[in-house]
């Protein structure tokens, strides 16, 4: 919660800063996480969330990184990321351009919750699900956007929230056609003009507003 308030504060300091989700397609190489992470830390950019997972293409990994920055900074960062040898492509998107979710787990005392809260209502209202119910504690799970998972924290806090954890963001880019076609381009020794890194030269406005 505090964090949220702070990032809002920061946001107010520079109105051009907003949340960006960076999606990075990479080879599966040891050390790559560090190579990517230091590009942020070197510039004193706080990584709000970072997730690594397989992608739609076998053998290719996908990083999802969330930062709060201006578009100019994010664009330059993406070029620095993409420049790394084992990285195929880095995209950045605003929240409007993606579908994103986070998952959260909440551990509460079963005794407390059974006495004071109407569990069923709670589950329905917040789209939560009980993952474990034991005599001593119960673990709920919700999946959603930050506000939704935060709301349940608020609700459960008065009942003694024992543990809370939230996952990194995962995101799907709305108008992406996936990486299969791009990969073919990358694999050919003589890529066509469509090849990715020249892509935004066509979007002159974006290039030239920097």
């Amino acid at each position: 919660m505090q964090l949220e308030a702070r990032s809002l504060q920061l946001k107010n300091m520079n109105p051009n800063k907003q949340q960006y989700t960076i999606t990075v397609y990479t080879e599966n190489q040891i050390g790559l996480l560090n190579r990517i992470a230091i590009l942020f830390s070197r510039r004193k950019i706080n990584v709000e969330s970072l997730n690594t997972s397989p992608s739609e293409v076998e053998g290719i990994h996908r990083f999802t990184i969330v930062i709060n920055e201006t578009e100019e900074v994010v664009r330059k960062l993406c070029r620095q990321i993409e420049k790394q040898v084992d990285i195929l492509k880095a995209y950045y998107n605003t929240n409007e351009e993606i579908i994103w979710q986070e998952m959260a787990l909440y551990k509460v005392s079963t005794e407390e919750i059974a006495e004071k809260v109407k569990v069923e209502r709670l589950l329905r209202e917040y789209g939560a699900r009980a993952v474990v119910i034991r005599k001593d504690y119960t673990v709920f799970e919700t999946t959603g956007q930050r506000e939704e998972t935060d709301k349940l924290v608020e609700v459960l806090e008065p009942y003694g929230l024992i543990e809370f954890v939230r996952s990194a963001r995962i995101a799907i880019i709305k108008d992406s056609h996936g990486f299969h076609e791009k990969l073919k381009e990358f694999e050919s020794t003589e890529p066509s003009e469509e090849v990715v890194e020249n892509e935004f030269l066509d979007k002159q406005d974006e290039v030239f507003t920097m």
């Binding site: 990479t26 040898v85 990285i87 990969l183 694999e187 020794t189 890529p191 890194e197 020249n198 030269l201």
Partner: peptide, 17 residues
């Protein structure tokens, strides 16, 4: 080695520019 799929040493030259 003459090609690495994740590495593009030279961007393609675009005549229009």
């Amino acid at each position: 080695c003459s090609h690495i799929r994740s590495y593009r040493p030279k961007p393609i030259v675009r005549k229009e520019y």
